[in-house]
Amino acid sequence: MADDGPVTALADPDDTTRSYKLRRGRMGTTGRAALENLQGRFALPAGEGALDLPALSGGAPVVLEIGFGMGASTLAMAEADPGTHVVATDVHTPGVARLLQGVDERGLTNVHVHEGDGRMLLHRRIRPGSLAGVRVYFPDPWRKPRHHKRRLVDAGFAALVADRLAPGGLLHLATDWEPYAEQMTAVLSAEPGLVLEPGGLGSRPAWRPVTGFEARGLALGHRVTDLFARRPR
């Protein structure tokens, strides 16, 4: 399911400035068992070459989700839409274990799980024009101005997503931090390979469950923004 050849000539992202904090956390015996026993069935094929997404998904459209947390929303959306294949990636090991366990318990066949940097996965292993969608829900807003350079959604990320989306493919972002929503809007509006669609404050679609991060933000009085950008057909 992989090809050792290069994916693209796009410049490699700067992986020295991470858009995430590594949070290993603690895992009990159940989580460790999930990592040991289920990765062979549900993890992405190992390697550095391009993924063969049609083979991986059985020909179904593939959506990449970057940063799934503990995976509850990922499981709910995958179960509700069995005709779409989800590649879900996160750096949080306990969350990876929880998602693997959930996929197994629900008997889902349309989810593959990856532990690692989603931006690097997108750059190095996803072919141009091969994704039906990209989802990024509640990425770290890096609120302090000196940390804004760590935000995932920037001009380089928008260009990379535009290149990887198939014609008509959709990028869906959500955040509860309004300054970040404003930056996201500016970034998407400036990317020639994407067309910003109607969305914005309070526009969560019914098919996107409320995430754990979102629920905490709402409890604190934060306002949620969903943004949609599509690669033109």
Rank of each mutant, 00 (worst) to 15 (best):
A181M: 04
H222P: 01
A80Q: 07
T16H: 06
G116V: 06
M184Q: 13
L100A: 09
A11E: 15
D140Y: 11
S203M: 13
R124H: 03
R223G: 01
K144E: 11
T8A: 14
R23E: 11
A34F: 06
E214Y: 02
L10S: 13
P94Y: 08
M27N: 06
L35V: 07
W177I: 09
G200F: 12
H114F: 10
D104Y: 01
M184C: 13
L196H: 00
Y180F: 15
D3S: 15
M120L: 15
A174M: 09
R146P: 08
F42A: 02
Q101P: 01
G83W: 04
A97Q: 06
T185W: 02
G25T: 11
R119Q: 14
E115I: 05
A55F: 01
G129R: 13
G221I: 11
R150F: 11
R98W: 03
A34M: 09
A76Q: 15
Q39M: 13
D12G: 01
L171R: 02
G193D: 05
E182C: 00
L194H: 05
S57G: 08
E65K: 07
R125S: 01
R208T: 04
G67H: 09
A46G: 14
D154Y: 03
F157W: 15
T16G: 05
L220Q: 15
V153Q: 04
R208G: 05
L99M: 04
R151D: 10
H92F: 12
G168W: 12
F42E: 02
P145R: 14
G200S: 09
D140T: 11
A46E: 15
G31P: 00
N37K: 12
D81K: 05
V134N: 08
E36L: 13
G31E: 06
L165M: 07
H92K: 14
R204S: 02
N110C: 12
R230K: 07
G102Y: 08
A219S: 14
L227Y: 08
L100T: 07
A229H: 07
A46D: 14
Q101K: 14
A190E: 12
Y20F: 15
L44V: 07
R18F: 01
